[in-house]
Design a protein around this nucleic acid. Structure first.
Lengths: 191, 191
DNA sequence: ATAAAGAACGAACGATCGTTCGTTATGGAA
DNA sequence: TTCCATAACGAACGATCGTTCGTTCTTTAT
């Protein structure tokens, strides 16, 4: 319950805005009682990050593996990813986009945990892209890392447009960008 | 001098990490003496944001207007924008990428100032893209807002890759993505 | 030279931060 | 029922936050 509320607060106000006192007041318990479960704020932050990762996995990755066997997963994965933003799974926008920006200039276990999870997701993506290349759904000699780079950019742009401008057209713009990225078979390959 | 140092600190540790005491200690002056110039932290934050905007303008926009007359500015603008990330103009990565993420969930004059500046830049971009369409350097019926969306995504991805992973290949990945985005004349248009 | 104006200062304010301590209540195992 | 680990608590800690106040010092103008 503490972690659930922590994920909400952290996604809306940042992992730094997740203060012990604020969280305890929200839940109607004492600061010391809350901290007793974790020992330090850092441990709490990491627990919140791990919980957010589970939510992300169930709301994005798990949605794409439901596709029928043999159907390419990459488009489904992208659509799930876009839909994850559209559905406002986290009240303050993508938890990891915000957390990565907040902690990219720091050092310590919190940043390490964050980077570790981001790397896992990156690897998932690259694997999917590689599989798409093998299945000839993407041009041969496609550089998976380049596609990963551009996909992340599309999703960051989507999150940015939604959170800063409240642009309800942004999801469709993201779909269009993904379409263009994934259906380049008719154009030249992307090195 | 206060603002100069403030921009550095804010870009490295966020606009919230820009505390009066910290800034005063860095400069060897007193908190009250520092605050006397602004009146409140909010005013200081906005002053810092405006200063960052000036730096951004001189390091990105002004670099592209130097191109000879008649030469399309859009590619030069994109290259200047990528180079701005590559040169680490701000010690903590793109000031506005960080600030926008930090303040997108809040309300008040600081967020308003930020959104205002971002909108100015967006409009600049859209105007350049529109000009490129008129000059037939982009396919007719190109939607400028779609190109703006994707360009912002590329730059956010670049910033992300540099700050989170220290990926020195990221600038070239961004160049590749921009190339693909701006040289779609041979493929189908982008709606 | 003198008066007015503004900058910088030290000190203190209440608030909140993360954390520690000792105590009280609770609930399952013996 | 007794015992013990654990959960929750209130209180307090030192630190730092943004801000205010009154005083000193350095200008600038008269």
């Amino acid at each position: 319950m503490i972690i659930t509320r922590g994920v909400e607060v952290a996604s809306a106000e940042g992992l730094a805005g997740l203060t012990i006192g604020r969280l305890a007041a929200d839940l109607g318990i004492s600061k010391s009682g809350l901290l007793g479960h974790f020992g330090s704020k850092e441990v709490l932050q990491i627990a919140v990050i791990d919980a957010a990762a589970q939510i992300f996995a169930s709301e994005v990755a798990d949605r794409a593996v439901d596709t029928a066997y043999g159907v390419p997963q990459l488009p489904a994965l992208c659509e799930a990813w876009i839909s994850y933003h559209e559905r406002n799974v986290f009240p303050g926008g993508c938890f990891f986009a915000a957390a990565a920006t907040e902690f990219d200039g720091r050092v310590g276990p919190v940043r390490d945990a964050l980077v570790g999870l981001l790397t896992l997701w990156r690897n998932d993506l690259r694997r999917q892209i590689h599989a798409a290349v093998v299945a000839a759904e993407l041009p041969m000699h496609t550089d998976p890392d380049q596609v990963v780079f551009e996909l992340i950019g599309i999703m960051l742009a989507l999150n940015h447009a939604l959170q800063v401008y409240g642009d309800s057209n942004a999801p469709d713009r993201a779909r269009q960008a993904v379409n263009r990225l994934l259906s380049m078979g008719l154009c030249k390959g992307i090195a």
